[in-house]
Nucleic acid binder design. Sequence first.
DNA 1: CTGAAAGCGCTAACAT
DNA 2: ATGTTAGCGCTTTCAG
Lengths: 355, 355
Amino acid sequence: MTREVPTPRGTTDRRRERVTIRAVAARAGVSAMTVSNVINRAGRASPATVAAVRAAVEELGYVPNVVARRLARARATTVGVLYAGERTPFLDAILVGALRATNARGLQLVLYHEEQLSLDAAEGAVLSLARSGADALLLVPPFAELLCDSAVLAELALPVAAIATDQVAPGMSTVRIDNRAAMADLTALVVARGYRRIALVAGRRDYSVSAARIAGFQDALAAHGLPSEAGLIVEGGFDVASGEAAARRLLARDVRPDAIMCSCDDMAAGVIAEAHRRGLRLPHDLAVTGFDDTMVAARMWPSLTTVYQPAEEMAFRATEQLIGAGDGDLVANDLIVAHTIVERESTASLRAVIT
Amino acid sequence: MTREVPTPRGTTDRRRERVTIRAVAARAGVSAMTVSNVINRAGRASPATVAAVRAAVEELGYVPNVVARRLARARATTVGVLYAGERTPFLDAILVGALRATNARGLQLVLYHEEQLSLDAAEGAVLSLARSGADALLLVPPFAELLCDSAVLAELALPVAAIATDQVAPGMSTVRIDNRAAMADLTALVVARGYRRIALVAGRRDYSVSAARIAGFQDALAAHGLPSEAGLIVEGGFDVASGEAAARRLLARDVRPDAIMCSCDDMAAGVIAEAHRRGLRLPHDLAVTGFDDTMVAARMWPSLTTVYQPAEEMAFRATEQLIGAGDGDLVANDLIVAHTIVERESTASLRAVIT
DNA sequence: CTGAAAGCGCTAACAT
DNA sequence: ATGTTAGCGCTTTCAG
């Protein structure tokens, strides 16, 4: 219990008096502008002043007020994220990555959830995002596909970045992995573990990554001299239920596949559930793989062999690219980041399991 | 391809000219101040002016600039979230909830990740959060426990809210479920499904919810006349690995439990993995339950019976409470939200499974 | 009930 | 190399 003393310091004591740029300026014996220069532009002040200002900043514990900064600056200050569908672990990772990036620069992140997947709806979403202050856009699949030719979006002339897509469009930055190569790598692993009748639960057709992954799958089969049977590729909807449905179809075949690869972890969860339900012993009777390496991959059993797509990192990079676009030239560029094959228990080699 | 015409409108065309409050004022034939009044304070303007302003806002598509608003206002404008440990589905849900709440009011959300779980570290984190502009704090477990008696935090005099905790402290708002009742309800369900030797993988001791859940577990056992055997309660660390470890201990006992309840979904995932590994048939040989109903619960097999703790909603509410605390009186209050028992396959009744 | 003045904290653009 | 002036868009007094 501290004694109730009439507040001695300052006028109102309402909040701990913020240290402003003027306080620093006074302390360092320079003008506010000089402090600003020291902080923001390198080599605009003499070494002596820089030192003095730095010292003052240190002593006072000054941290620039991001709000004031944003108001004064002309550059982009709020990034809008446009996404659709249910929240998934993959999406959450993206949101957190974008949030970290905006946090780092004191910018605002605005979420917009649009359920409809039509061009009209997407354009409406973009418009209201722009209206509520977004001056840069981060697109989550499948909005890059939807908006790549949008006149409305072009008219707005905002920097736009799309993530986890295979749709590269002019005027739109992209941050993605090489989906085709990733799926080929993963398929090669499954083959190496001894599986031969390999099925694929592909993603939705309107997501550009889906086709790339199918191509990678077929690349690898061909490379290993395995036949690519049309019936062993079925289309899913990227969710658990569609994985279960696909597994039901695949496992009802006369000759069952001995491995089912999936275009996302959630569908793999569905496949695994269905396999368990039918009493199959995993991974001996059936290997399963996912894609993305979301948080669920290591939490199911058998733990899931999958491709790590660094969603959070990708969102972070894309957001930084968006932010950077404010001052520099806003060239759209296409960044391909590394993926990683993560081998877990769901593809344990046939031999190893028998042992 | 649109023709390249010298931009006719405005000076620079740099950005789509923002509609400012002054534009609206001009359109409505009033002063900027009146527009502000119409928007922010009810009943401060005559019905006629209100109508005129509303019309002007509508026609121009005016949306207030949140940055300018925040700079001008005195109230809380940036909420800091203090969290620790690995990112989990539960934590992500909290972050998204908080983000939605700040978005709704045009405020900033700042994340701070502190790995150390000591009072000193926590106070340091709070301080640097405050320094970087946070004027309200959202505490994720176990920071409420850590900081409830902190003099540093008290000195700062910021509104603070803690979420998903059982630690209610004066001067700190809380949003939580009734953990004891929730665990009792869930235990009652397990008993009702025919399981009798029920074990519990409790949470870490330094999280206040852990004790409450143990109490609820014991309440229910007592209510049903079942003995509470000390050896059947083991402490876990809220992660998958600790769930596996706990399952190893529990399943190695002479008389195996027929159900293992866990204080979070992740530990349940670990228990399920270990049970599968030992060749147990789930849920017949062993029922498992989780807690939280995170996104993994429905993605494992058997799908997990658990308690839905509305993490996103709780974070949203807590953040709103924090924001509201800015203008009104900052009374700390303790909000208990409803939990829901979610029954899935992991506790299918013994009879049903045998059929 | 309405509006004029002043300024939140910072940074362009221009002097000096 | 440094400082002056002006103003980002809004809201808080406090007068009319």
